[in-house]
């Protein structure tokens, strides 16, 4: 899923303080799972903002709504009838949702309420970690199912580097060395010999480097 984290309340206040009518718009997908932008977080943020404006002696209308998804036209249509009632929408969706909402409601300011962080998984309650950088050309078949592009701080394809120590990365004792994980996994699979196959220079044109990307599927297009 796409993992997001809450923005500091001070930053959010700074971005919405001039508005009198605000809709906080949550998303029921990834940001709900990572507890940054679902219905619950919309409610908490709405309460915090109401309290802030009350203390400031300002009369600001703050409404709450959470859509099934903000990255789909269909669900974004649900607010079409009410969007004009607001001076701004504070979206707690990921960056995709914020942009898709902005594209659809061209004359309404759409502000981000979360920082979109990475593609990852819930490792345990309250801990999300990165697993994928969407490089567009998956090599997991060669690396024991563990991704060095997203999990090695130097995205080494033929690692580990000399900074791997006791299973941890040189940047932090909290970060696993991806290549230690790869080696352990190759060993468990009885495929340690495969480590010595040199991974060729990667074609990064399917990555961010190639410019904004698109997937075109004529077989499913309407």
């Amino acid at each position: 899923m796409i993992v997001a984290d809450k923005k500091p309340i001070e930053e959010i206040i700074e971005s919405v303080k001039e508005f009198k009518k605000i809709l906080i718009l949550g998303c029921n997908e990834c940001v709900t799972v990572c507890e940054a932008g679902g219905k619950k977080e919309v409610g908490i943020l709405a309460s915090a903002l109401r309290m802030f404006f009350l203390n400031q002696g300002k009369d600001v209308k703050i409404d709450e709504q959470t859509l099934e998804r903000q990255c789909d036209h269909e669900y974004l249509e649900e607010i079409r009838d009410v969007v004009d009632q607001y001076e701004a929408i504070l979206s707690l969706a990921c960056g995709v949702g914020v942009q898709f909402t902005a594209e659809k409601y061209h004359s309404t300011p759409i502000l981000p309420g979360v920082n979109t962080c990475f593609l990852g998984a819930t490792e345990q309650r309250g801990l999300w970690t990165e697993r994928c950088q969407a490089c567009g050309s998956c090599i997991l078949a060669f690396t024991g199912g563990i991704c060095p592009v997203s999990r090695c701080a130097k995205r080494l394809l033929n690692g580990p580097c000399g900074g791997s120590s006791k299973g941890k990365c040189e940047i932090s004792k909290d970060v696993d060395c991806a290549w230690q994980l790869i080696i352990d996994r190759l060993k468990a699979l009885g495929k340690l010999d495969e480590y010595e196959k040199v991974q060729p220079i990667k074609n990064w044109s399917t990555d961010r480097a190639g410019g904004p990307r698109r997937v075109v599927r004529e077989d499913v297009a309407l």
Binding site: C161, C177, I183, L192
Partner: peptide, 17 residues
Amino acid sequence: ADPFEIRVPRLAKKVTC
């Protein structure tokens, strides 16, 4: 550096390169 068992294969890989 760790993992130790990969340190020689890693050198072998550099030689291959």
